[in-house]
Amino acid sequence: MGSCVARPSKLIGVRKGDYPKSKSGRQYFNSKCSRKSKSSRTSNNKVLKDPLEENILHKYEIGNELGRGEFGITYQCFELETGEAYACKKISKAKLKTDIDIEDVQREVEILRHLPKHPNLVSYKDAFEDDEAVYLVMELCRGGELFDRIVAKGHYTERAAAKVIKTILEIVKVCHEHGVIHRDLKPENFLLADESETAPIKVIDFGLSIFYEP
């Protein structure tokens, strides 16, 4: 369902207020998500049980697109109060065709809220909902995907590969200890916190994850 990754080339030199805008002058999101809009949403098409509020633009400014998934698009965003950068995953309600799709989104949010703070788990920040979409605000990882790092390096030494695998197993252990099975572990779903060679990896995308009794 998208990612929290920021491709390094898209972040260098980017400042708050520098983002590309549409012809209407809005930054990516349409008028349904403007500051002055009022939602006419009914409970029939509500996805989240307890979103923070309906209008994400009351708290965040939306920037560059970072990536796309089956159900939505991830953008860079900035918290208005602090200026701190985050990743915002916009999940289009038009893509949620079945009750199972809706339940998957609900469960993903529940899992993000449930898991503990951990250096190798992407951190959850906020959730919003309006007529058009659900918005998940999470930690921004600036180093790209583990998959791209593997391709760029060409090969890992046995010691370096063992370190990565050990971290992945530790992530699985933490998730299982808290009653969560990820079910979609692959290099594309591990991000590097920054561009350094020693950057920690963080697991993302709990869209297929489930709760279970440990």
Rank of each mutant, 00 (worst) to 15 (best):
R15Y: 07
V109R: 08
C88M: 15
Q76Y: 00
F211M: 03
F211T: 09
K49S: 13
R142T: 15
S37R: 13
H155D: 10
H178D: 00
V151S: 06
S196L: 09
K93Y: 04
N189Q: 00
C175W: 00
P20G: 09
K166N: 11
L146A: 06
E145W: 03
P51K: 07
K90I: 14
G69F: 09
D101S: 08
E145A: 14
C88I: 06
H178S: 05
V180T: 04
T98H: 03
R183G: 01
F147L: 15
L146D: 00
F211H: 02
K16N: 10
D184P: 04
K95Q: 14
G69Q: 06
P51D: 11
R68W: 10
D184Q: 03
I102C: 06
K90F: 07
V174D: 00
D205H: 01
A85I: 01
L57K: 10
K186D: 07
D101N: 15
D126C: 11
H176K: 00
R26K: 14
K117Q: 13
D184V: 10
K97R: 15
L96P: 09
N55D: 13
N44T: 12
L48I: 09
V164N: 03
C175G: 01
P116L: 08
E213W: 06
E213V: 12
A6R: 08
G83M: 01
E213H: 07
F206N: 08
E103I: 07
Y60M: 05
I171N: 05
H114G: 07
L191M: 15
D126N: 15
E195R: 12
K93D: 03
G25T: 04
D205W: 03
C88H: 04
Y75R: 00
A152P: 02
V122F: 08
D130T: 02
K16L: 12
E54Y: 14
S22A: 14
E195V: 15
F29A: 08
I73V: 15
R41C: 12
C175D: 02
H178T: 03
L66Y: 05
S37M: 09
L191E: 05
N120F: 00
V180R: 05
L146I: 01
A162L: 06
F211K: 07
S37Y: 11
S209D: 03
G67T: 10
D104I: 00
S39W: 03
E54L: 11
K49I: 08
H155T: 15
C141H: 04
A161Q: 06
K46C: 08
D131K: 06
H58Y: 10
K173S: 11
E158K: 07
S24T: 15
L112V: 06
Y19F: 15
R107N: 12
L11G: 13
I102N: 05
H118S: 12
E79D: 05
T167I: 05
V203S: 01
R15A: 14
G63V: 02
K89R: 14
L115N: 02
S43V: 13
L96G: 08
K21Q: 14
C88E: 02
E132Q: 13
H114D: 09
V14Y: 12
E108T: 08
V137H: 05
M138L: 14
L169N: 10
I201V: 11
K166Q: 11
K95L: 13
D130Y: 04
L96N: 02
L192N: 11
I91H: 01
N30D: 15
L115C: 09
L96W: 04
